[in-house]
Design a protein around this nucleic acid. Structure first.
Length: 202
DNA sequence: TGGGTGATGGACT
DNA sequence: GTCCATCACCCAC
């Protein structure tokens, strides 16, 4: 499934996490698990801007077993367990020692729909399949074992399939669920494709 | 070593 | 709108 549409390494190494978060909209994320390929268009993202962002796990240069993967080079996954129940998937971005990440909050399923429905214990396709950061990981089969994996590998990867969006297709808003970050909760660092059904919420 | 908490989702009123 | 499952993580003690 490797091909020349995979995002190149330099895409992830860009230093501007808000820019990368917007550029990831319209790209397609795939997983391949035991030979089963599933994938969907990224329709909603949030930027987490490293050591100065109070909503980021790396705020204040916090370096722990959990956060260390964000201090490596961009182009790998950061997966963590939230509320003891849900795995959330992030794209690590930026150069080494710059702990930025983009949270993926919604995908529009396009490949392996039957497998994704099965993983979600659903019969028919509705946005509940993969609108939301904890549901899309379940649909794609992403769990803790995906933490730190290369996004240019055979298990998980991201492609540019030629979907182009201009500014008027993208809605910018504040991030979800980060009230604890006080004034940083007001930063406009959430991005989603206007009108898409698989956005977690308006 | 203990306890509060969280980048959520689903069920229910 | 409300409630809460469920547990790794983190930091204060």
């Amino acid at each position: 499934m490797k091909n020349n549409k995979q995002l190149p390494k330099y895409f992830y190494l860009q230093d501007d996490v808000q820019w990368v978060a917007q550029q990831l909209l319209g790209k397609v994320i795939y997983t391949s698990i035991n030979g089963l390929v599933t994938g969907g268009i990224i329709v909603e993202t949030e930027a987490y801007n490293g050591i100065t962002d109070k909503a980021s796990h790396a705020y204040g240069r916090r370096f722990t077993e959990r956060t260390k993967v964000m201090y490596g080079e961009g182009g790998v996954s950061y997966v963590y367990l939230c509320y003891g129940i849900h795995y959330l998937f992030n794209v690590v971005t930026g150069p080494i020692d710059v702990p930025q990440a983009v949270l993926v909050r919604g995908i529009e399923p396009i490949v392996g729909l039957d497998y994704m429905l099965k993983r979600r214990n659903m019969e028919v396709l509705t946005p509940r399949l993969s609108a939301g950061p904890g549901t899309l990981t379940q649909a794609l089969g992403i769990a803790g074992n995906f933490n730190g994996k290369s996004l240019s590998g055979d298990d998980i990867w991201i492609e540019d399939v030629g979907i182009s969006l201009d500014e008027q297709d993208i809605v910018v808003s504040t991030r979800i669920g980060v009230e604890y970050a006080k004034e940083d909760a007001l930063l406009p660092w959430r991005y989603y494709i206007k009108g898409n059904r698989f956005v977690s919420r308006k």
